[in-house]
Simulated assay, not measured.
Amino acid sequence: MPTPPQLQELFRTVYGAVYQCNRYNCYFVEFAGGISPFKVRDFLDLKHHVDAINVEAMLKDPSRASDVHVLMPYRSERCFVLSLTDVLHFQELLQGAKAMLSLNSILHECLYAPVAY
């Protein structure tokens, strides 16, 4: 996907990408064949909900209902129907994006912190 100039790629895997849009102060999540915008708080909530999916329970439960997890993020038109492998890939993508956000914050603090004399 070609990215417009206002989008900066935060993190990418083979299965998706997360872009930052400073113009609208939001993140765009590209995953499972679609792109969805999320405000900062909603993106962090999405990550929290994806991390909270109990992968071990999905593995151990023999019922067919445990084969998928349906996730409907707040204030989003998108609904994610995730298989076990999708959950793992989504967790990896969002964890990597969050790590890059933390790294950006640390770098910004180091570069722009007031210098004490």
Results as ranks from 00 to 15, higher is better:
S83E: 10
L84P: 02
S76W: 00
M100N: 04
S66Y: 09
Q95W: 01
H48E: 14
E9D: 05
L103T: 04
D86S: 06
K47L: 03
G96V: 02
N25E: 09
S76N: 14
G33R: 02
L88T: 00
L82D: 11
E77C: 10
H108G: 08
A99S: 10
V14G: 06
P62Q: 04
V40S: 09
Q20V: 02
E30M: 08
V40I: 08
S102T: 02
L88Q: 09
D45I: 06
T13Y: 07
L44E: 14
G96H: 12
L101W: 01
Q95L: 05
K39A: 13
L93D: 04
I106C: 15
Q20G: 04
Y112H: 07
L103G: 00
L71A: 08
L107V: 10
H48S: 11
S66E: 05
Y19D: 04
Q20P: 01
E92K: 02
S102Q: 10
L93Q: 03
H69T: 06
V87R: 06
C79L: 10
S105H: 01
S105I: 00
C26E: 13
R64P: 02
A99F: 10
Y74I: 15
V87N: 11
A113P: 00
V87I: 07
S83R: 04
D67A: 13
L82C: 12
A57W: 10
H108I: 02
D61T: 04
L111R: 11
A99D: 13
V18C: 15
F31H: 05
Y112R: 06
L107Y: 06
P62F: 05
N25G: 03
A52C: 06
M58C: 15
H89F: 11
A113W: 01
D86K: 10
L59I: 04
Q91N: 09
E9S: 09
A17N: 12
F11R: 01
E56P: 00
L59R: 13
L111E: 12
Y27F: 15
A17M: 11
V68L: 12
L84Q: 10
L103M: 14
S83H: 08
L84N: 12
F90W: 01
L101A: 09
V40G: 12
S76G: 15
Y27P: 05
R23C: 14
L101C: 11
R12Y: 01
L59V: 03
K98E: 14
L10T: 03
E109V: 02
L93R: 01
D42C: 07
H89E: 11
V40E: 08
C21G: 14
E56N: 07
A99N: 08
C21Y: 01
D42I: 02
H49G: 07
A65N: 09
A97S: 04
